[in-house]
């Protein structure tokens, strides 16, 4: 993927997220969302190493992964606005957004829950004789969930083509990574017998190159690998945090990381005209996405119990009829 394409994807994620913040604050999107602002190089760089038939599992902070894996942005916007044209037909929202046809096995509301799902998909790929891989995205908070370690062990013993991508943004909500985690993340992963690499998560080309090498090795039968991306979120854990005044990070710390904004890092490798052209086309895409979402219908209340069972079973109502 070219520098221009990498920048375009990151710019799309950034502007999508900024628009989401506005829409949440205006109550046009219900609930809270977890923005990916600052971490764009990770999803973009890793997904640049992937094919359409590769599988990813994502997190509560999932919009970036889903965009980078190729999901339709207008249908994402429609999902977040709770419209029937949304990727998940208004049943998932931000935290469960998915496009199974693109191998996106869902954002996930439970930290580290996507890990074994990715491993199962990777195993299925091997059974099918395919060289596809599965990527499990998770944050630094997930490294202290047992299921992640159970899964890394299983991927290790069965040599599954899983790339474990740890987005170390320094904080599990407000709890600093160095307070939460004993030892080193890559050393933990290496203990399971897999290649474990740390990379600058603010440089999309560095991420792409590191992920590309690990994915290529996994496709060739080399088993699982672990990629720690050192990154930072420029905004709160979720939209609502802006008004909460939690104060677990200093303004200086945020400003220092913003100097290494991944969009600035990559834009510096492009000429200004190319950047301006991409920026304009991203604005056009997002305007189209928002218009599409706003024009799309809201779900019928009578359909609230649809889509629960593949067999067509309809759950009982909460009142005797």
């Amino acid at each position: 993927m070219s520098a221009a394409d990498l920048y375009r994807t990151m710019r799309t994620i950034r502007r999508f997220e900024e628009q989401i913040v506005t829409l949440v604050n205006a109550n046009e999107i219900a609930g809270v969302t977890h923005e990916y602002i600052g971490q764009e190089a990770v999803a973009t760089g890793v997904c640049a190493a992937l094919r359409d038939d590769d599988v990813i599992t994502s997190t509560h902070r999932g919009h970036g992964h889903v965009i980078a894996k190729g999901a339709d942005v207008p249908r994402m916007m429609a999902e977040l606005l709770g419209r029937t044209t949304g990727l998940n037909r208004a049943r998932g929202g931000s935290m469960h957004i998915a496009d199974v046809s693109l191998g996106i096995y869902g954002a996930n509301g439970i930290v580290a829950a996507g890990a074994p799902i990715a491993a199962g998909a990777a195993w299925a790929g091997l059974q099918a004789g395919s060289d596809r891989v599965a990527v499990c995205f998770f944050g630094d908070g997930a490294v202290n969930q047992g299921v992640l370690h159970e899964t890394m062990n299983m991927a290790g013993i069965w040599r599954l083509p899983v790339l474990f991508v740890c987005e170390n943004n320094g904080y599990a909500v407000s709890f600093a990574q160095e307070q939460a985690t004993a030892g080193s993340l890559v050393e933990r992963a290496a203990a399971y017998g897999m290649a474990a690499v740390r990379v600058d998560g603010m440089d999309v080309e560095a991420v792409r190159d590191a992920a590309g090498a690990l994915v290529a090795a996994a496709r060739a039968g080399g088993g699982p690998a672990f990629l720690e991306c050192e990154t930072y979120r420029f905004v709160g854990h979720h939209t609502a945090e802006a008004t909460m005044g939690l104060g677990y990070r200093s303004d200086e710390e945020i400003a220092r990381w913003r100097e290494r904004d991944p969009l600035l890092v990559e834009a510096a490798r492009l000429d200004a005209a190319a950047v301006a052209e991409i920026d304009a086309s991203v604005e056009e895409l997002l305007e189209r996405a928002l218009a599409f979402a706003r024009e799309s219908p809201r779900p019928e209340v009578s359909s609230a119990r649809d889509y629960v069972y593949a067999s067509g079973l309809v759950p009982r109502e909460g009142v005797a009829v």
């Binding site: 074994p116 199962g120 299925a124 059974q127 047992g146 299921v147 299983m154």
Partner: peptide, 22 residues
């Protein structure tokens, strides 16, 4: 499987999404 109930249960779901019937 190893003694990893959470992981092998989630693993089954991933395999199911990829076309298996675990």
């Amino acid at each position: 499987t190893p003694i990893s109930e959470q992981a092998f249960t989630g693993f089954a779901m991933g395999a199911a999404l990829a076309g298996h019937r675990p």
